[in-house]
Amino acid sequence: MKPDQLLYPTPKGLYCEAGGFYIDPVAPVDRALITHGHSDHARAGHGHVLATEETLDIMAIRYGADFAGSRQVATLGEVMTINGVTVHFHPAGHVLGSAQIAVETGPTRIVVSGDYKRRRDPTCLPFEPVSCDVFITEATFGLPVFRHPADTGEVAKLMTSLAQFPERAHLVGAYSLGKAQRVIRLIRETGYDAPIYIHGALQRLCDFYVERGIDLGPLEPATLASGGKRSFAGAIVVGPPSAFADRWARRFADPLPIFASGWMLVRQRAKQRGVELPMIISDHCDWDELIATIEGIRPGEVWVTHGREEALVRWCALQGLPAKPLHLVGYEDEGGEA
């Protein structure tokens, strides 16, 4: 079977006709395989969901226990068969529970990477390269301008600022699944052991990470009850970025707005959002990681999806590697959980 008959884009998402399933469908379907728990990939209302145990747990936390008709745990590395199509899951290094999904019939293997990165992340398993005929890669940061610096340096900026501005509450905007926990963990790795205050929207996912053995240190709710206006001076507060434009942010006396995101590399982006201290920390590959991954896997063909497809397709063309953009709709490449 040709690769583009095995998997092809439909309005509901990437579809495997032979297996009768979708991968990360954006609308309710009978059978869904889900790469990870971010809300644009994992949606509620499917008939049957196959995903890693962590991803299933995260969906239950986000959507309630009845998020799907039935569910099935995919164990990493285990080979399964769905209507004669072989599938197996491998770590993607994106967030806790994130997986790439390999789909194969006969000699043809396609790897759907989902979202992935290659950097060390203390909160999830590292990306595992899987050889394949077609590698479907994301391109969220698929432009040569995106070269994310080492995250230790970014966390050091926060620590320096805490010492420089002990009178200000340091509000760190970080998406609630993955980024927030990783940032907290990275802060702990510097030896910072004071309580970190979190927005209510992060509570259950942080609890889940802790249950899974990731030590986030003392966390306290960032409520006024936790000690009046002044007590947030010099404290680190982590919350979803949207909350900082909200009335919620008014409880902090002299907030210093920070945003942990790969987008913060571009100064104008930071400026537009009113961010004073950008922390360039990404859960996606930067340009060099994308290229190193493709060079390492050496697939027969590359399909590029959400993000800046054209630059990566151009780069593949320069290497003599067949590549095409795969136009999938419904995934957020900006303002979403990047």
């Binding site: 432009l143 040569p144 301008v145 995106f146 070269r147 590399l265 571009v266 100064r267 104008q268 800046r308 054209e310 630059a311 151009r314 780069w315 320069l318």
Partner: peptide
């Protein structure tokens, strides 16, 4: 590559910043 540079510059919008990156 000139095309990759053009994509980059179009995105960032500032020559110094594009080249720095």
């Amino acid at each position: 590559d000139e095309v990759l540079f053009r994509y980059s510059y179009d995105y960032v919008g500032d020559l110094a910043e594009t080249i720095a990156l």
